[in-house]
Nucleic acid binder design. Structure first.
Lengths: 204, 204
DNA sequence: CTTGTATTTGACCGTCTAGTCAACTATTCT
DNA sequence: AGAATAGTTGACTAGACGGTCAAATACAAG
């Protein structure tokens, strides 16, 4: 009961957009409100700080958007290496879209925000870490499956996953800094390479 | 002639420290001045904005400190793979020190600042890119030498270097986000692994 | 010692920003 | 209809911040 509103959702979306495009520290509450078409009074009705909003925005984005995409790309119905290659390809395609829309390569919001705020805001840091850890688990699971079918040599799958994830996020961040998609084009192949993949690599 | 001063140097150092520990967007000119023990009027005598100072600080740090360290670590007198392993080990050791002093893993200032400001400040972005590109060249040169002696399989050395660099910076950033050095411990081994190194890897 | 130059200082201004609040409006339930 | 609830508004404050400046100070060279 009571008055209805989608202002909260608009704030979440505006905040993530703005912070992704610019950075956490530089985006003001006023700017978020303006982009969301919401007055500051309403902002403080829903959230009590920029930090709280950012955590909610990261969470919402992962739960509502990210997770489903990752689930589809890492579907067990695909061959394990195909999952990884397909994922990397879709990341590339996604950044092509982002560059078309925003005029810039923006990389991974969670990683950028996490890296920026980690020493300053423990709550954001923890949320970013949580999401990134979830993502690493997708890698790890695909690597395990690949090892089971023999397309990736045996050995600590968790370590391999962390390694692949570092390559992945490092490339995205580099692409953001250079504002150049070239860093990402080779990602599908490079990913299989560093895993020492046996099947797809040769076929390609 | 005229009054002498090291205020400029103090400002450069304070700025890099503060921005490295916190972030570019969140560090104010007042804070930099306070840490440097310099009044704001003097700040504007030497620099005309935080952006200008940041570019100078990145540059100074690379020219005065970074370059020499990289030169030593990538000295041609060392076997190519030993250069890479030694470099990664020294990065790990360095971050251990940083964590002792600052209480946190801070990662690579150039990469963090670059990623944060890239969409906002073209001058900082360009300087960060320039330094990062220089660093990639150290990797590339070592990889080329390794290929020449047969310890790394042939193939596009520039691409391999970018890949290794992404792994390297991705790991550092991840370590910052998690505030955990574990992400870095395996870096020396992982680096040789992804290069498909033949000699040192087996010996280890 | 004095003159020219480099640097420092602190006071000052306008603007931006986080955060508050009481009054107002829309919606739902009874 | 009317009470209760959920959300909105705009005006307000206090402080932080970027940026400016004229006057003061320290140093170096002639």
């Amino acid at each position: 009961m009571g008055r209805t509103s989608d202002a909260k959702e608009r704030l979440l979306e505006a905040a993530l957009d703005l912070i992704w495009e610019r950075s956490y520290g530089v985006v003001t509450i006023d700017a978020i409100c303006e982009k969301a078409g919401v007055k500051k009074g309403s902002f403080y009705y829903f959230f009590d700080s920029k930090s709280t909003l950012a955590v909610a925005a990261l969470n919402e984005n992962w739960i509502q958007d990210g997770k489903a995409k990752w689930d589809a790309l890492f579907s067990a119905s695909l061959p394990p290496l195909e999952r990884i290659r397909g994922f990397m390809q879709s990341v590339y395609d996604g950044q092509v879209e982002v560059k078309k829309e925003h005029g810039k390569v923006l990389g991974c919001p969670c990683f950028s925000i996490g890296s920026e705020t980690s020493t300053q805001d423990e709550v954001i840091r923890a949320k970013a870490q949580e999401i990134l850890q979830s993502q690493i688990r997708y890698f790890e699971s695909a690597i395990r499956d690949a090892q089971a079918e023999g397309s990736v040599p045996p050995g600590d799958a968790a370590a391999k996953a962390k390694c692949l994830f570092a390559l992945f996020e490092g490339s995205l961040a580099q692409a953001r800094i250079q504002n150049d998609l070239d860093f990402l084009r080779t990602l599908p192949d490079a990913s299989l390479d560093i895993l020492g993949a046996r099947s797809l690599k040769v076929a390609a």
